[in-house]
Amino acid sequence: MERRTFLRGAVIGTSAAAFGGTLMRGAAYAAPAQNGPGPYGALGSADANGLQLPSGFTSRVVARSGQAVSGTSYTWHNAPDGGACFADGTGWIYVSNSEVSTGGGAGALRFDSSGAITGAHRILSNTRNNCAGGATPWNTWLSCEEVSRGYVYETDPWGAKPAVRRDAMGLFKHEAAAADPVRKVVYLTEDESDGCFYRFVPTTWGDLSAGTLQVLTAGTGTSGSFGWANVPDPDGSPTYTRDQVSGAKIFNGGEGCHYAGDNVWFTTKGDNRVWQLNLTAGTYELAYDDSLVTNGAAPLTGVDNVTGSSSGDLFIAEDGGNMEICIITPDDVVAPFLRITGQTGSEITGPAFSPDGTRLYFSSQRGTTGSSSGGITYEVTGPFRA
């Protein structure tokens, strides 16, 4: 079962009905992605920024922790983590979390249509360990606290409106979020070894101030059908949200989350897996498992943040591993897309494409120093396939 159809549907607006029998195979699950040649070819030698890239791609550094962003007086935050891009007229904004225990929050870089940096600003302050998050269809950034009984904050990428804490989305060790405009819900991952996968159903779509938090229920296997059950006490006190519902499926260290074309993908770092929920069929399966790669060494380990491109490719950042961003194609091939050299004490965070799909932004959270003050945020430009 190829995933190209699923992903392209979100880009070209194809309805689920057009997929026909592909979506309705029920138990005919795909094999997890296998090692193979990537669509962009082999990685070249490290460039001046220490990045190994395929032919035709170039990199630049757009921000460094503790230093003023070029052309501005704004100091870029420490430990840059989850990120997303937002269209801004003919340009765009890249937002980035700060995963530090004091101050936390998130900042933003502003670009014009040529990719030149035109500004930088703060969009969230005085929060804790803001790890990943997610963009909403109404152009806000959900910044998630990766602490026990942490919050989700809804922020304005332009920095014009104050951030709002969204208590109804639950208090737990939040990681990432992904909005589903078809079902009008937001999916949420939990970074615990015995964590769960959630969805928040707002009372009114576009307003996250009230709604119902639900947890995914399923068996113990790696594929099957799933359901949703209401979490009785989203505030997680005195009982953690993950322990409130009998039958809630346990996932080992939830990380990145991405929605496209009636499917949602999320990663679990504890077992190096990428999970796929087919939301139309109501089934789940493994899109990738490093222990199930049968044709050579697994190229993707330390799975973390994930994003998708218009071609239907998934781009998955490593926390550790070989400091790579790997690609999983709709044809279930996994391969390295880029590698950062000389930064073994770091992790790759915040991959996100510019609105036109020609630029990929991401950070090395601790850079060459291995410290949160050494973060580096990059841009890679090149012939990404449409």
Rank of each mutant, 00 (worst) to 15 (best):
residue 3 R to E: 02
residue 6 F to R: 09
residue 7 L to E: 04
residue 10 A to H: 13
residue 11 V to M: 03
residue 11 V to R: 10
residue 21 G to V: 12
residue 33 A to V: 11
residue 38 G to N: 13
residue 41 G to D: 11
residue 45 S to F: 05
residue 52 Q to E: 15
residue 60 R to K: 14
residue 61 V to E: 11
residue 67 Q to S: 04
residue 70 S to A: 14
residue 74 Y to L: 01
residue 74 Y to P: 03
residue 84 A to L: 15
residue 84 A to K: 15
residue 86 F to K: 04
residue 89 G to K: 11
residue 91 G to S: 05
residue 92 W to G: 05
residue 94 Y to S: 03
residue 103 G to N: 11
residue 104 G to M: 08
residue 105 G to E: 13
residue 105 G to K: 14
residue 108 A to F: 11
residue 111 F to Y: 04
residue 113 S to T: 14
residue 116 A to S: 13
residue 117 I to R: 07
residue 119 G to L: 01
residue 125 S to L: 10
residue 127 T to Q: 06
residue 128 R to H: 01
residue 129 N to Q: 08
residue 132 A to S: 09
residue 134 G to F: 01
residue 138 W to H: 03
residue 141 W to S: 02
residue 146 E to K: 11
residue 148 S to Q: 14
residue 155 T to F: 06
residue 162 P to L: 15
residue 165 R to A: 00
residue 166 R to T: 03
residue 173 K to L: 03
residue 174 H to M: 03
residue 174 H to I: 00
residue 184 K to W: 06
residue 185 V to T: 06
residue 186 V to R: 10
residue 188 L to I: 06
residue 191 D to S: 04
residue 192 E to N: 10
residue 196 C to W: 03
residue 199 R to A: 02
residue 201 V to P: 03
residue 203 T to D: 14
residue 206 G to H: 12
residue 207 D to K: 12
residue 208 L to H: 13
residue 214 Q to G: 00
residue 217 T to S: 04
residue 218 A to Y: 07
residue 218 A to I: 07
residue 218 A to F: 04
residue 219 G to V: 06
residue 221 G to P: 08
residue 222 T to S: 11
residue 224 G to H: 05
residue 227 G to E: 10
residue 232 P to Y: 04
residue 233 D to A: 08
residue 235 D to C: 02
residue 236 G to L: 11
residue 237 S to V: 07
residue 239 T to M: 11
residue 239 T to F: 07
residue 240 Y to E: 08
residue 241 T to M: 05
residue 249 K to M: 06
residue 251 F to W: 05
residue 253 G to H: 14
residue 261 G to D: 15
residue 263 N to S: 15
residue 271 D to F: 06
residue 273 R to D: 03
residue 273 R to G: 01
residue 274 V to M: 00
residue 274 V to Q: 01
residue 275 W to R: 04
residue 276 Q to Y: 03
residue 277 L to D: 02
residue 284 Y to A: 02
residue 285 E to T: 07
residue 286 L to E: 13
residue 288 Y to I: 01
residue 289 D to C: 12
residue 291 S to M: 02
residue 293 V to S: 05
residue 293 V to M: 05
residue 296 G to L: 07
residue 296 G to M: 06
residue 298 A to K: 03
residue 298 A to Y: 02
residue 299 P to M: 14
residue 301 T to E: 07
residue 308 G to A: 10
residue 309 S to L: 09
residue 313 D to C: 14
residue 314 L to F: 00
residue 316 I to R: 12
residue 325 I to Y: 08
residue 330 P to Q: 12
residue 337 F to R: 12
residue 348 I to S: 00
residue 353 F to D: 03
residue 354 S to I: 10
residue 355 P to I: 09
residue 360 L to I: 14
residue 364 S to E: 12
residue 366 R to V: 10
residue 368 T to G: 12
residue 369 T to S: 15
residue 369 T to F: 07
residue 370 G to C: 09
residue 370 G to A: 08
residue 371 S to W: 01
residue 385 R to I: 14
residue 386 A to R: 15
